[in-house]
Design a protein around this nucleic acid. Structure first.
Lengths: 194, 194
DNA sequence: GAGATGCTACCTACTAGTAGATAGATGTCA
DNA sequence: TGACATCTATCTACTAGTAGGTAGCATCTC
């Protein structure tokens, strides 16, 4: 009769959370098992029980990231009917995600360290970005047809540009430790939303 | 009687070159003195003669990067009379710099590893970005007055957005190992240039 | 219902290897 | 002769990962 209202101390999830924070604030090469161990409160050796190698950890990290972002996109679709509203909701999500100029998207953090990553994770990055481009492209097509995004060109190109801009905006804010940079970077795109 | 037509084996410059390539392709935490030593052909201990610590090396790297980019901006000003032509020349520079989706700008590479860097270098990153924003802002003002950049809004905001977009575009191309991502990301901005 | 078995989730203690950094000797050239 | 540049040899701290062990719980069997 364990108390079901209180979640078990799911260490595996705690490790993933800690690793995600670490990767997004310091990069893939910027954290060690020792950091995670200290953060979660177990020994480094015990991490290997959950994730035999750092490659396994990063794969799990990217998989969870992909799934959670897919869910976010679905949620946006469910709550916002127009292209403009969906685009604005995505921008808001990236604003939250960069956590006051402290973090970047996991995909950005991993991209820099690409050469330290397993081929599997490099593939996961591409698949994540393809999913995002596809979803953003659909948002732009909706926005053009319902008139809530102005001056739209080819949706695939708009999607690639928007993803680059969102990531670049997070990076700028982080580089200068100034959240205002994110807003400035997004201002032009935001002004096209009705 | 060394051949003066052939540059002397300036090790310090060679080390900076090697470190810059390494940082821009693998990030600040992604290369070691051992990598540089192997690349340049000396022992790791000898690197400490030129750069006592990795912090000194990264400071020198950022300083040289700042100066070389300031020179690039001056050169663009000297060779291109209109705002549109100057903006296009800057985009071309970033296209060359990302070296077929292999590299990113040093400032991007360092931003990710911000927490591993000395406060000095963090300051240098901000100063580099401020310089670039100022120069890009002036380009947008010229482009508005001479009519070679369309639909310009506040030049400071345009500058911040353009810098974010350029960096985000490099990052996207690198993340997916596909130079086309850079072009797609820049397409909308490029279409505003006359 | 008691003992045996096996699983989960950790532990201590260790390995081989790499990180940046240092001291002091050596070679080279004007 | 002496400054400069590089070397060998070494250091301490840390890296991911491994070996082997164990407490506690669940399940199976007699």
């Amino acid at each position: 009769m364990t108390d079901k209202s209180k979640a078990p101390p799911d260490r595996k999830t705690a490790l993933l959370d800690s690793a995600e924070r670490a990767a997004r604030s310091r990069g893939f090469d910027g954290f060690s098992y020792a950091d995670l161990a200290k953060d979660v409160g177990i020994r480094t050796a015990s991490i290997h029980y959950h994730f035999p190698s750092k490659a396994d950890l990063s794969t799990a990290l990217m998989q969870r990231y992909h799934e959670s972002f897919a869910a976010i996109c679905e949620e946006i679709d469910a709550h916002h009917a127009t292209g403009g509203a969906r685009l604005q909701a995505l921008i808001d999500r990236y604003r939250i995600a960069h956590n006051d100029a402290q973090w970047v998207c996991l995909c950005v953090a991993f991209s820099i360290s690409r050469e330290s990553l397993s081929p599997e994770v490099v593939g996961q990055i591409s698949r994540f970005r393809a999913m995002m481009r596809k979803w953003i492209g659909a948002v732009f097509e909706l926005g053009r047809s319902d008139g809530t995004i102005l001056n739209t060109s080819d949706s695939a190109i708009e999607a690639a540009a928007t993803l680059s801009l969102l990531e670049g905006a997070q990076l700028s804010a982080r580089a200068e430790e100034n959240p205002a940079r994110f807003e400035e970077a997004m201002a032009h795109l935001a002004s096209r939303v009705r």
